[in-house]
Nucleic acid binder design. Structure first.
Lengths: 200, 200
DNA sequence: TGTACATCAGTGAACGCGCGTTCACTGATGTAC
DNA sequence: TGTACATCAGTGAACGCGCGTTCACTGATGTAC
């Protein structure tokens, strides 16, 4: 797309590794992991394609860096408070619901990054971001007595799976043809479904 | 892989379209949608690459046929009875559980086909297989009084999302590093989670 | 303060790859008469 | 029953593409003395 190489004043870039990752992330944001083309990324930064090999072993290595950044951005997005004026939360599940909504919102708003975050070999995410966010919230629900300890075990996996699955189905799966209103209903239904699954 | 072209006795193949799809499906089974290489598929069938264009508009068209077959195979797999000697089913949710297990089993046993079924533009699946199977089972659960009518609305989407999500996370997502035993626990937890989500 | 030199970070040209697709074509088939 | 001919289903050679990666290289930097 942007074929014209960027200008650069100094021969040495100074922070080329970071610049390449940033450009690569923006490409992924716009077009998913497939859009992370090494030569194109270098071109955008205004550097020869070869120079990337001073900082990354190969293309897959660059993609791994993008994946990590995408996962971080997703985890950060989960923590956003979607409700400006905090509504009352009698059930106590408001925070969990908000995080699930944020997850689904992120996948809709940033499909490219979402794809990049969970592409190819995403095993590294196990110990990272989104999982911990959900775990913490579930821990608090147990602490406040909303969720019984017996329901806690493995709950983050079930919750995560539910949300992740709906995201996939809506994004490019069989539910991608749903209208906005239908999507909203599906999301609302799923949130209720999740809360019921955590209680009795 | 198999570079040697197949032999053929007659000039006209007779059923080339079907033969190409079958070969393409087997490639997808082995290596996912990316393994469906038009030239390679033609080679395996023992036919020039050009001949494929007598039966498919282009590569994407062939891939669509593969996708459809993969979806059919998944839907069929859902109906398999995984328990040879039928265990008693006091809760009445045995059939739903079995179908969910079958879904997850299919994604583990046939990752390539699963990827092919839900690749790129899978919107066609909306009206097809897996969805209907789940819907029918849920309808029966309502009919037999196991699930209240109020819980029925949109339930297939929530159930499907849960199962599909766990499949994704286990397959190439962040949970791909789980051992077999841990996977089993995650699946069992999810099934309980789903049943609870459907009831109260 | 000046200089030699190892090291680091960049360059441009080139390669091989194998794909999807198009082209002008030829062999086989089946139907009208 | 035989034959002309339109149509269908196949062929092989060729093209353009743009990628990731390697190569031998050059410019800039910083440190030891």
């Amino acid at each position: 797309v942007n074929t014209a190489p960027a200008r650069r004043d100094r021969y040495h870039h100074g922070d080329l590794a970071r610049a390449l990752v940033t450009a690569a992330v923006e490409r992924a944001r716009a077009g998913g992991p497939q859009a992370v083309v090494l030569r194109e990324v270098a071109r955008e930064v205004g550097v020869s394609a070869t120079s990337a090999y001073r900082h990354f072993a190969n293309h897959a290595d660059l993609l791994r860096a993008v994946q990590q950044r995408a996962q971080e951005e997703l985890a950060t997005a989960l923590l956003a408070d979607p409700v400006p004026d905090r509504t009352p939360d009698p059930s106590g599940f408001g925070r969990l619901r908000a995080q699930c909504r944020n997850y689904l919102r992120f996948t809709q708003d940033q499909p490219g990054l979402f794809r990049a975050a969970f592409g190819q070999d995403a095993s590294a995410a196990m110990s990272s971001g989104s999982m911990h966010v959900l775990s913490d919230t579930l821990d608090d629900l147990v602490a406040s007595g909303r969720v019984s300890p017996g329901r806690r075990a493995g709950a983050e996996i079930s919750v995560w799976a539910s949300v992740h699955g709906l995201a996939e189905l809506l994004l490019e799966g069989p539910l991608s043809s749903l209208e906005a209103a239908e999507r909203g209903v599906a999301v609302d239904d799923l949130l209720d479904f999740i809360v019921r699954g955590l209680t009795d």
